Amino acid sequence: MRAHVQEIVFDCADPAALVRFWAGLLGGAPVDRSTDWSYVDPPGFVRLAFQQVPEGKSVKNRVHLDLEVLDPVVAADEAVTAGASRVGDLVKDEQGSFQVMWDPEGNEFCFVTG
């Protein structure tokens, strides 16, 4: 059996706010399906959906998105302006570089090159 990824779903406190952050980062129009479910279809990527849950995030994500960019420093600066936070310093090695980030609700993602 083979499956197809339909969407990636983030648990969150405020789906409407979080979908707008990710739509700003990746493109696409945010859609609020209901007060507890929003999604965006970024160009060239699978749908990202955001569902409201009562509990807050308490530990590191077991899965995160790596987003390829030309310059992770510039991308991080723009994401911080939109509500994200840097986690640590830029990491560089012979394979490229990456900057770990948190979205406005603390979900980890990385800007990567290489």
Rank of each mutant, 00 (worst) to 15 (best):
A49P: 02
F50N: 04
Q51M: 06
Q51T: 11
Q52C: 07
V53C: 04
V53R: 05
V53Y: 05
P54R: 03
P54V: 13
G56K: 05
G56S: 11
G56Q: 06
G56R: 08
K57T: 11
K57A: 09
S58D: 05
S58M: 05
S58R: 13
V59C: 01
V59H: 06
V59N: 03
V59K: 07
K60H: 02
K60W: 01
K60V: 08
N61D: 14
N61K: 02
N61E: 02
R62M: 06
V63K: 03
V63Y: 11
V63N: 10
V63P: 01
H64A: 01
H64G: 00
H64S: 00
D66K: 01
D66L: 00
L67E: 00
L67W: 00
L67I: 15
L67M: 00
E68N: 02
E68Q: 08
V69F: 04
V69I: 12
V69T: 13
L70P: 02
D71F: 07
D71H: 01
P72Y: 10
P72E: 07
P72N: 08
P72W: 08
V73C: 07
V73M: 10
V73W: 05
V73R: 10
V73D: 13
V74P: 00
V74C: 13
A75N: 11
A75H: 09
A76G: 07
A76Y: 09
D77F: 15
D77V: 15
D77L: 14
D77N: 15
E78V: 14
E78D: 15
E78K: 12
E78P: 08
A79N: 01
A79G: 13
V80G: 05
V80P: 01
V80I: 15
T81D: 13
T81C: 08
A82W: 14
G83Y: 12
A84P: 06
A84Q: 14
S85Y: 10
S85V: 15
S85H: 15
S85Q: 15
R86Y: 06
R86N: 03
V87K: 03
V87M: 06
V87G: 00
G88H: 09
D89S: 14
K92G: 00
K92Q: 10
D93G: 05
D93Y: 00
D93E: 08
E94R: 08
Q95A: 14
G96Y: 06
S97T: 04
S97D: 05
S97R: 00
Q99K: 09
Q99G: 10
Q99P: 13
V100N: 01
V100I: 13
M101L: 13
W102E: 11
W102M: 06
W102C: 03
D103M: 09
D103G: 02
D103Q: 11
D103N: 09
P104N: 14
E105R: 07
E105Q: 11
G106L: 03
